[in-house]
Design a protein around this nucleic acid. Structure first.
Length: 696
DNA sequence: GTTCTAGAAC
DNA sequence: GTTCTAGAAC
């Protein structure tokens, strides 16, 4: 490796060279494929910019900054002799001091992929060593190293120092003043610039970073939504810094790295600046400019987990980070992702264990990818928020919180596993719990607690629900299947989907709406009270589409379904409700039935109607949630056979020859509900729930 | 004769 | 999902 010294000081045959000569010489050397070292003060951004420009796309620009104390710089410049530029003695002190006043530490946003600050001799030696030991194909990590959070541009008491020099170096105070003036023809402009910098903090220097990966679990993550989804970068940087600070305050052992491909990334600069203002620990949070899929081999940063800014279908391609990560992860990652989730909601994330055959595991050593979906402000992409930054902020916050919580979950689960317990390609989905996010989180976690308190595990649902009918038991044994393949939907089955996707066109139709669901009265109620909580997530048509990442949504739907059931039972304490899903619905778009158990309705006309609510065709919401938590997806019984079963009373289980006879029976049946419907599956009026519990 | 089911059509 | 209706069941 040839490193010609293109110093402006020595370029002209040992005489002082010009900047133009230096630039010319450097450009030629780069053209020849050589590595070029510019040894120049370059204290200001403008001075450096022309050298950085030379690199273009074909060469990396690094900066090694001799960030020595002002006192030392001045002392050395005063003492030195024989300087090529004749800058020594008292004159040197004045010039150095002037220069230091204008010092603008280099930033990655200028185009440097790697910046190393040397504060002392050891740092300088290390920097020299790291460059001199590079092999032909070696490279050094991108990022900022060794920067300290001090802003002592000028030595304190310098005037006192210079006064002393007046006598020693024969430089008068006036000379100093006039020299400063002479050397600063643009001093007015500079003053304005400095003023601007005070007003615009983004032009001030970035935070200092001394980030080191000391074996702590480390997550590398891209900025979510600020690229293709066009989320305002300034606003997004606030969210990132908030979420990072919050997460780091909760867990003192983890490290986070924000990654952007471009060294000129505005996001990295914004985040660094805001993190510094917020005093975020730079040992635990850093930024990295480079390829996230090669951050370990190229950046030597020892990340365990990487995040991906994905699309709602979790599909490879598209561009940006998503394309890069799926591209680098290979088919194995694609399959593993598909197994974990088919779609993802904005503001949530999905953890995928990286298969051992994936290059991301083999080459980089990453163990997990966490796919994250943020808010979209791009009208060309689905679910555009149309500049609604109130929603946007919330969703972006949710997205980062979900990402960090899932990262914490990965660490927890890894800590509890043995190192060699890795899940190999094609095996079951990671049992990491997906965090619930958003405003219903607290309520949802209450549901979770309730489910836990009430005991039975989802995978035991079929075992504990011992059927009373032998036929049903046989149906169960013979035909438990997960209908995971996408079905085609007939023309008449899209009404709920249309409502969920375009609720603004159907304002008169719904009872309640949120970002996650819309609630309507069933058009053909099969009981006195029968409403539907319809999920609004695109691509979520039925139970077979559910994966771990839908748990927060399912819990929110359950919570709001409960709320309505409770409202109805307050109005009429005789009502009892069940909340559940049809295992094979006729209408597309996942919808939760909240239905009173009287089944007193002229719309309940046939066997199919009855059995769809009174056999295992009807899946209780609590069971679905538990089953997905346990297995990652919901298994379902053969719905066709279940729907043609005999008609049995849902209280006493007596059989009846036809619907009219059944209906007349249930109108007078006084038997309690069977034990299988207890454990949280029935919702009673609060005034009679204790009495109902005694019934059983 | 009426009641009810089940399959086709939408 | 519903509606319609032929035909089975009574």
């Amino acid at each position: 490796m040839a490193i010609p010294l293109s110093s402006a000081d020595t370029i002209a045959n040992g005489k002082a060279g010009t900047k133009a000569q230096c630039l010319k010489s450097a450009a030629e050397a780069l053209k020849e494929g050589k590595n070029v070292l510019i040894d120049r003060c370059n204290l200001e951004l403008e001075q450096r910019s022309e050298f950085v420009k030379l690199c273009g796309a074909q060469a990396d620009a690094h900066a090694v900054v001799l960030d020595l104390p002002a006192r030392l710089c001045i002392s050395r410049s005063v003492k030195r002799t024989g300087h090529e530029g004749n800058l020594q003695g008292g004159k040197a002190a004045a010039v150095v001091n002037r220069m230091l006043q204008k010092k603008e530490p280099p930033k990655q946003s200028e185009g440097f992929s790697r910046i190393v600050f040397c504060q002392n001799e050891t740092d300088v030696r290390n920097a020299v060593d790291s460059y001199s030991s590079l092999g032909l194909f070696d490279s050094l990590a991108s990022g900022i190293f060794g920067q300290k959070n001090l802003d002592n541009k000028v030595q304190q008491g310098i005037m006192k120092f210079l006064k002393k020099l007046d006598t020693v170096g024969n430089v008068s105070q006036d000379t100093f003043k006039s020299e400063c003036k002479d050397l600063s023809p643009e001093s007015v402009k500079e003053k304005e610039d400095r003023k601007d910098k005070q007003i615009n903090p983004l032009l001030q220097k970035p935070i200092f970073s001394d980030f080191h990966c000391n074996g702590a679990p480390t997550l590398a993550f891209p900025s979510i939504s600020t690229s293709d989804f066009q989320f305002n970068q300034d606003k997004a940087s606030d969210v990132i810094v908030d979420a990072v600070a919050n997460f780091l305050s909760k867990d003192d052992k983890v490290r986070l790295i924000l990654v952007d491909l471009s060294p000129k990334s505005n996001m990295l600069s914004l985040v660094r600046f805001k993190a510094s203002k917020k005093n975020v620990d730079t040992k635990r949070f850093s930024t990295y400019a480079g390829d996230i899929t090669r951050i370990n081999t190229e950046g030597q940063l020892k990340c365990n987990v990487i995040a991906n800014a994905t699309n709602w279908r979790l599909k490879p391609g598209g561009g940006g980070v998503n394309a890069a990560i799926f591209g680098a992860g290979g088919k194995a990652l694609e399959i593993a992702t598909k197994k974990q989730a088919e779609t993802i909601s904005p503001g949530t994330s999905v953890v995928v264990t990286i298969p051992t055959t994936s290059p991301l595991y083999q080459r980089e050593g990453f163990t997990h990818v966490i796919h994250v979906l943020g808010p979209n402000m791009n009208p060309q992409r689905p679910n555009c928020l149309q500049n609604d930054y109130v929603k946007g902020f919330k969703i972006l916050h949710d997205a980062y919180n979900s990402l960090f919580e899932n990262f914490a979950s990965v660490i927890r689960s890894k800590n509890s596993e043995k190192e060699d317990d890795r899940v190999s390609e094609g095996e079951h989905c990671e049992s990491v719990k997906i965090s619930a996010v958003g405003s219903a989180e607290n309520q949802a976690s209450h549901v979770e607690q309730k489910i836990k308190r009430e005991g039975s595990h989802a995978s035991d649902r079929k075992k504990k629900c011992i059927p009373h009918v032998h036929d049903e038991e046989e149906v169960q044994k013979s035909s438990k299947t997960a209908h995971s393949t996408k079905r085609s939907w007939p023309s008449w089955s899209h009404a709920l989907h249309e409502l969920a996707m375009n609720p603004e066109k159907h304002k008169e139709s719904y009872l309640e709406i949120s970002d996650d669901y819309v609630i309507v009265n069933d058009r053909y109620p099969k009981a006195k009270r029968h409403i539907l909580v319809i999920a609004r997530l695109p691509g979520l048509d039925c139970l077979a589409d559910l994966r771990c990442n839908h748990l927060p949504l399912l819990k929110k739907m359950h919570v709001v379904g409960l709320k309505w059931a409770e409202k109805f039972t307050n109005d009429d304490p005789s009502l009892v409700f069940r909340l559940g899903y049809h295992s094979a619905p006729s209408m597309r778009q996942l919808h939760l039935h909240v239905i009173s158990q009287d089944f007193e309705s002229s719309h309940l006309k046939n066997r199919k109607h009855w059995n769809s609510f009174n056999t295992l065709f009807f899946c209780d919401s609590v069971d679905i949630i538990k089953e997905i938590e346990a297995n990652g997806l919901a298994s379902m019984d053969d719905y066709e056979k279940l729907l043609s079963l005999e008609l049995r009373c849902h209280h006493c289980k007596s059989a009846h020859p036809n619907i009219p006879r059944l209906k007349s029976h249930i109108a007078s049946c006084k038997a309690p509900f069977p034990i299988q419907l207890q454990n949280g599956r029935l919702v009673f009026s609060s005034t009679r729930s204790s009495a109902a519990a005694c019934d059983t």
